[in-house]
Design a protein around this nucleic acid. Sequence first.
RNA 1: GUGACUGUAGCUCAGUUGGUUAGAGCGCCAGAUUGUGGAUCUGGAGGUCGCGGGUUCAAGCCCCGUCAGUCACCCCA
Length: 443
Amino acid sequence: MTKPLITPATLKGFRDYLPAPAMAREAIMEVARRVYRSYGFSPIDTPALEYTEVLLGKGGEESDKQLFRFTDNGGRDVAMRFDLTVPFARFAAQHLNDIGVPFKRYHLAPVWRGENTQRGRYREFMQCDFDTIGTDSNAADIETLLVIHDLLSAIGFERFRIRINNRLVLNGLLEKLGLGDRASGVLRALDKLHKIGRDGVTAELCEKVQTTTDQAARVLDFAHLTGTPSEILSRLDGMLQGNATGELGVARLRELFSVASHAGIPPERVDLDVSIARGLDYYTGTIYETFLTDDPKIGSICSGGRYDNLAGLFTSQKLPGVGASLGLDRLLAAMESFGMIGQASTPAPVLVVSFDATRVAEYARLGRMLRQAGINTEVFPDSRAVGKQLKYADKKGFRIAVIAGEDEFAAGVWQVKDLKAGTQSRVAEADLPSHLNDILKPA
RNA sequence: GUGACUGUAGCUCAGUUGGUUAGAGCGCCAGAUUGUGGAUCUGGAGGUCGCGGGUUCAAGCCCCGUCAGUCACCCCA
C-alpha cells in the first residue's frame, strides 16, 4: 500500500527560484544595498503581516481589493503587506522618537498582491525601496533621481529612461481649468496617454470624468508637450502663469533637471513627461517612472515620488518624504528575456575533484585552504570517475577543476584545469591561490 | 476581478475527418574511453497527453468544470 502522492505545485503568481536566477536575484539585491548605503540609507525591516486596518485605505480602493487578508488563529483581522511604503508609514509613526528626522531607510522585502498575473507581474514579488522622510527639500527629490540612475547603471543597464513629472504642475493646470475637484480621474486618464493615445484619453475624460470637450482639449494640449526638459519648462511657464501651485512645480522640476545635468546624468536617460501621473493617490510632488528601452512592455521597473504626509493615518506629526522602489522580479523577468541571466548554477568557481578515495583528507584540506584565500571552492563528495566529475563541473558552470592522484601527490603538485579555456597545468600548492586568481581575475 | 488564447517526455514541438502499442530533435543515463568535461558513434530510460467529469463502440483531438501560463482591460513593481 503506497501513500497517495501530493502533487508538487506552487500557487498562481508564486514562484520557485532555481539556482541561476536565484543567484542573479541575490546579485541585484547586493548591488541595491551597496548603492543605497553609498547614499547613507540605513536598512530596516518590518513584518510581512500587519493588522488589516494599518494597510487599508492608504493606496486606494484597488489595493484594498488586492490584499491577501484573513483572520489569524487568535481572531485578529490581518493582511500581508502589498507594498513597503505603507508599513514604513506605520513604522515611522511608531518609532519617530528613535529614528529622528530626516530619516533615510532602505528596505528589500517581498510584498503580496492578489491580482491577475502576467509576465513580470506576480502575486509575490520583491521590492527594493528607499525613502527619505522628514524633509521638503528638493535636494531629496534630486537625490532620489540620482539613486535610481546609479542603481540601474550599477546593475548593468545602459538603455533606460527615467520619466519625471511633478503633480504640482498637473494640479496647477487643473486648478486653472476648474478641474481641481476631479484631479484623480483626470490624472488616471492622462496616465494612459502613451497607451491609448490622444483620442482615447479625450474619450475617457469626457465620458468618465465628465469634462467639457474644451477642458479635455486643453488637458491634452498640455500633455502633448514634447522636447527637451528646458523647452517644455518654458512652455509651462506661460501656461501656468499666475498659479502658485503650478509655478512651484515648474521651479522644482527646473532645478532637478539642472542639477541632474551638472551631476553628470546623461540627458538621454531622463525625460520630462507631463503625462505621467502614477496610479497611487498619495504622491503629491515629483513622480518617477523608469522604463527599459528594450522592453518597455514590461512596465516601469523603478517608480516612486514625493508625498506630503506619509504617516497622516498614524500620527499628527507631519512627515513629508520622497522615495522610489525597484521592482526586482519584474526587472529579472526582463533580464531573462534579454539572456542576461547566466547559466552557471554554482557560486563557486573551483571544484576539487575527488580522484582517490584514500585522499579525502587532502582534498578537504585543499578546499579549506582555497576558501581561506577567498576563493569559493566545492569539493566533490564521491570518488567517481574523473570524467563524471568534470562533466558535473562543466554542467554546473565551474570555471576550474583542481585534480590530483598518485602521480601528483608524489610530485607535490596539483593539476589545474581551466574548463573554459580547455588548458591544464601543474602547479605547486603554494602557488595555487595566485595561479587560480590569475585565471579568475578577468571574469 | 472581467475577457481571450494556450497546456502532449526534463526542454522545444509534431500528432490526419475522434480509430489499435502517442512520435521527433535537444537534454538525461550507460558504453566506446577502468587518470580528464564540451565533439562523434552505439545502446537505453523516460509520457496519469495539466487535473476532474461528460459525450462516444472508441477521446491527445469534441463538450463542461477546474488548475496553471500568456495576452488585453483594470491596476501596477
